[in-house]
Amino acid sequence: MSALLRVSEVSKSFGGVTANRALSLSVDAGAIAGLIGPNGSGKTTLFNCIVGRHPVDSGSVVFDGREIRHRTVPQIARLGLLRTFQQTRVYGAMDCVQNMQISAPQRDAENARQKLFRKVPAAVTEKAESLLEFAGLYEKRRLRAGELSFGQQKLLEFAMALMNEPKMLLLDEPTAGINPTLINGIMERLLRANAELGITLLVIEHNMRVIMNLAQHIYCLAHGSLLAAGTPQEVREDPRVLSAYLGAQ
């Protein structure tokens, strides 16, 4: 299988602090990859570099056969590479259905211009509602997104991403701060999105149980560099990973 996302030798520093040092990774189309590492190891920075939020100092980011390191956030998103945020970001004063409607894809510029001054088609609303049902939010669909709990907002953000029909989704700690009873639900939904909708996933996760069960391939960062990579089994048994998490012994 070919790589959908290929990050090569990406470096990024803020002032004197190097957040990413010559990082390389690749994710195959249809795969689920994991990104782990202690706090401050540069995981979120890497996400921001990939989706165009931070300019990359050096290196290249190729998505779907195209170099994207000089493209802007919205352009990259329209190519089908989306991310969710660690602290949820939803449109707080709009209700859930509206949050979903505005997330409908509009890749083709001509198409987008025409639809701008049309009402949202019924098909889009239907799809929005069915995805809300998939996320377990159908009952709350007319509530303002800002009134939802943190966990529900995470689910809504996930549903919004699916609504956009991305090729690939970068998820920043999808289960952090969520009630443990809900975590299995989120995992199951991630797997279904991958299997049924064919969305490639790259997931930052601190919860080892989640990531070990989810990902086929895991990258572990420490101090901005790639520490280890491999199958969950390999990474789990890598002594360098253990010492990065538990401190050198």
């Binding site: 956030v73 998103a77 991310r83 939803v90 709009m94 505005i102 639809k115 049309r118």
Partner: peptide, 30 residues
């Protein structure tokens, strides 16, 4: 106009412009 997609887009920019950009909305144009 507010009942169209355009109205939703404006509200999205108001509520969270960074998110709107991350979702691929053409915020500058709107």
């Amino acid at each position: 106009v507010y009942r169209c997609r355009f109205g939703l887009a404006l509200n999205a920019i108001r509520d969270n412009e960074d998110k709107a950009e991350a979702m691929g909305l053409r915020t500058t144009r709107y």
